[in-house]
Design a protein around this nucleic acid. Structure first.
Lengths: 250, 250
DNA sequence: ACGCTACTGCGTATGCCGTAAACGGTACTG
DNA sequence: CAGTACCGTTTACGGCATACGCAGTAGCGT
């Protein structure tokens, strides 16, 4: 009665946590959960998430499709584990950094991780509350960064959500620009399209932004300009948190 | 040469914008793009996004599956239009409000819209740059709210992204808690699970947050506490923007 | 030493999905 | 009134996730 109290959880999640020992009976497993997830991640990296099917992953491993179901109850479970593997373990906080430097570091590390696996970003929204080791390690690290602030626990959590949400949405925009497939516009056609659509005087503020060149990629800085959006948002958030901390201390 | 310059776009997107007239030849269409999208939205509301298949939507409308393909080139296109319909047109800004009140209003209206169609939130990340009428109307409205601030156009855009991203990620968390399906934990099992997983001393900051009760739903306020996370984040963001505006003006 | 048993990986089968292709009816243009 | 572009339908295909049942295997208690 002490190891099945979280029993409402998928077995594969318990397995990544190492809470599941190898059963005493039966043949030695020929596969590993980590190996399966790694193969799936490799496929997604190379050909996108749509290319990841159970049969495809099985083929990659040289086993039959159904063999995978001895390790994973459902494809959805595999996807959750892929999302965990994609972000990987978080890098340690820079030594002696204050909370702000810590969160800045945390945010750009997460951004880098998500950009390295473009298929993973959408999964962060879909997979529900974080329950896998790496996901929770990232969360823990952000909370560590905020440890010395005296912020109430709930506010620490809310702050992590805030920063994490910003990372995710900025990454999504960057990936949306780069996407070659999917419906919607190619990025190169986007500004002309917006001009056409705002030509009739509705959406005047959007029109003004276009005229001001807000949708051009060039502008002093090139690719740096994109990074500018990320840095801008992060700075606003952390400024807001910093101000909040000041009022708390007084 | 004046109506096909945005020609790289899906025809169905041009159609929602009203840029496509009925062709002069052939029988009268028996369906409407809006009708199709509405049927799909109804199905998704009632039974979730997974229940929305082409054949299902067709059945709902009493036509054959393939009839839909006269209006939509691909299921993905239909999904994009569903996402647009789900958010709907934005409500007007409160009269005489400053930028901050405007954005607050904008953000909670968007939150309400997304919560009303739980299946829609994940789509916002997936569907690429906004290209549909309602999506762009929301964007325009946020830019309108920021019109008087003197912020550079790019910063206005970045601010909209920032606030929108916060709304989306907070909504995702709320929906993740309420979700009955999908992999990952049920919410009721979540705190015990976290306790079990943090029992070994790794993830100390997370453990501390749990002990501090950050994962209990109760706490003075009940459902308001959830709203608290949203309001907290929004306030930090807007505080940060406000401070930034002050430094710009000096 | 041995058989019981729980577990492995596999082959087969089902039902659904998105969508390509070809076809006959339809309504407007010249 | 003929031509033609478009409508909705039928049929068909390949791929998908996954339920089920099987034969082989390895450690256990005896």
């Amino acid at each position: 009665m002490d190891s099945e109290n979280g029993g409402a959880f998928p077995a594969s999640i318990e397995a990544v946590w190492g809470l599941r020992g190898r059963p005493p009976k039966g043949p030695r497993p020929g596969l590993t959960l980590e190996g399966i997830v790694a193969a799936a991640v490799r496929t997604a990296d190379a050909e996108g998430l749509d290319a990841v099917s159970m049969s495809r992953v099985a083929k990659e491993l040289g086993v039959s499709t159904m063999a995978l179901y001895r390790y994973v109850a459902t494809k959805d479970e595999l996807v959750v584990l892929m999302a965990d593997a994609a972000v990987g373990p978080p890098p340690p906080l820079p030594e002696g950094a204050d909370w702000r430097k810590g969160l800045e570091h945390w945010a750009s590390a997460m951004r880098t991780a998500l950009l390295a696996h473009p298929w993973a970003a959408p999964l962060m929204v879909t997979t529900g509350p974080p329950a896998t080791p790496n996901q929770l390690a990232w969360l823990d690290l952000a909370l560590q960064a905020l440890a010395g602030t005296g912020l109430p626990a709930r506010a620490k959590l809310a702050t992590e959500l805030l920063v994490g949400g910003h990372v995710l949405s900025e990454v999504s925009v960057v990936l949306g620009m780069a996407a070659e497939q999917g419906p919607g516009p190619r990025w190169a056609d986007y500004e002309p399209f917006l001009r056409r659509v705002t030509g009739d005087g509705r959406l005047p503020a959007l029109r003004a932004a276009i005229e001001a060149g807000a949708f051009g990629d060039d502008e002093p800085g090139g690719a740096e300009e994109v990074h500018g959006t990320f840095a801008y948002g992060l700075a606003r958030i952390l400024d807001g948190v910093e101000a909040h901390l000041r009022t708390l201390r007084s």
